[in-house]
Amino acid sequence: MEIRELTRDDAMASTAMSRNAFGGSLDLSFFTLGAGITRWGLFDGADLVAKANDRHYDSLIGGRPVPTAGVGGVVVTPETHGRGSARTVMTHLLHRARERGAVISTLFRTVPALYRSLGYEQVTERVDGALPSAALRGMRVPAGITLRRATVADAPAVRQVYDDIAAQGSCWLDRRPPLFPRGTAADADLISAVHGTTLAVDDAGTVQGYVRWTRGDGVGTGAVLTASELLSRTASGTAGLLAALASFDAVTPEIHLRTTGTDPVFWAVPGYGWRVEKVEPYLLRVIDLAGAVAARGWPVGVSGALELTVTDPLCPWNSGDHRLVIEGGRGRLEPGDGSGVSVTVNGSAVLIAGSIGAAALRRGGMVAGGGAEHDAVLDVLTAGPRPGILDFF
């Protein structure tokens, strides 16, 4: 068995594996190489038997970029299932991702048991939901907000809204090059990728929010309007954008909306009928614990320390007795004395993502030892925005 980076010569074999696993066509244009992605393959002689992609993202946690290995396209041939091929290629990917500077890894899981055994744990989910257009009846554009259709010239302002909101959260992807291109061509693609992007603009002319929407076919029963993103810095902007969606009530009785599951948009919907259509669980794994602690932002105005012990057989450099020190919005990991709590590698993923209390982690078997005083410190140190994700990879 040999593990190596895939090359252009492997495009057909890799694409065929993906088609067999996920469906679709043999479109080789999706097999991209270059900056921002590393494709790993496990070969048995000349045969590709397993593969996994490392996308070089940054995740925004506490307002700071955290170098991330976004894992996708994990496939094992049906003839080699059960031989540990997925574990082999994933272990290699994590070790090599650390070498290039990634400190965490994230993925949308298809096989929970496999990824949990590799140290990944669910930290948030992407939620596709639906609500009747009637739930928005009566909504009006608030004073101080004007709605208008976006043009290509507005693309930078649309991106800035996302950037600002993502920086306030946890685990949102930093949409910057190379995996998120910018420039004239990318601006045109952003606007043309949907049927319309409606902007919420304040009296000063500043774009405060946007909704990107696609109008489905037909009128009346069965017709759908899909809002792939609705983001606003202000409550009035959110209300205005929902009023824009409400204007389709006469022709599309249903609205589909993609959310992080914790969006404030839910607080602004006046009517009844929201339902979840699809949930995509999002998992995180710590590749380099010290690096992740140093990279992410921590609660400003909070200072403290906690002794914690971590055991990580897959990435052994994370194992040991540590002292987590937080001060001035920054964190660091120092040698510890083992007198605090024990945290599984899965638990360390949840702690880096933030906002999950120690009591829940104990009930989940990810924190042990210590006492109530340790839990109280842990809750304060890891407080912060709830994780969320909008992008899929």
Rank of each mutant, 00 (worst) to 15 (best):
D47H: 07
W274S: 02
H92C: 04
G63Q: 01
G371K: 03
L131T: 01
P299S: 14
R4E: 08
V123G: 06
F108A: 00
G388W: 12
Q122S: 03
A294W: 10
L241S: 04
Y282D: 07
A246K: 05
S342W: 00
V325T: 13
G297T: 13
I104P: 11
Y57N: 04
S228V: 11
S303P: 10
G364F: 13
A113E: 08
D321R: 05
L308D: 00
N318Y: 00
D27H: 11
G340K: 02
L190F: 15
A360Y: 11
L147S: 00
G371Y: 05
H92Y: 08
R96S: 12
R8V: 06
G209F: 07
V211M: 14
G218W: 08
D54R: 15
V76I: 04
Y115R: 06
S59R: 07
T214Y: 08
A46W: 12
G119I: 02
V219C: 14
I104K: 14
Y272W: 15
D337S: 01
T110C: 10
I61Y: 12
I191Q: 10
R386G: 05
L361S: 05
T151S: 15
N318G: 01
Y162I: 09
T88P: 00
V111P: 02
R285M: 15
E307N: 01
L94M: 15
G70L: 08
R330P: 08
I145P: 14
T151D: 09
V293T: 03
V141P: 09
G291V: 02
G220V: 03
T68D: 15
F248E: 07
R98T: 15
A239I: 13
D9Q: 13
T32G: 02
D379R: 02
L28Q: 09
V302Q: 13
G347D: 01
L361A: 13
V141M: 03
A246M: 10
L378S: 00
T252R: 14
V207Q: 14
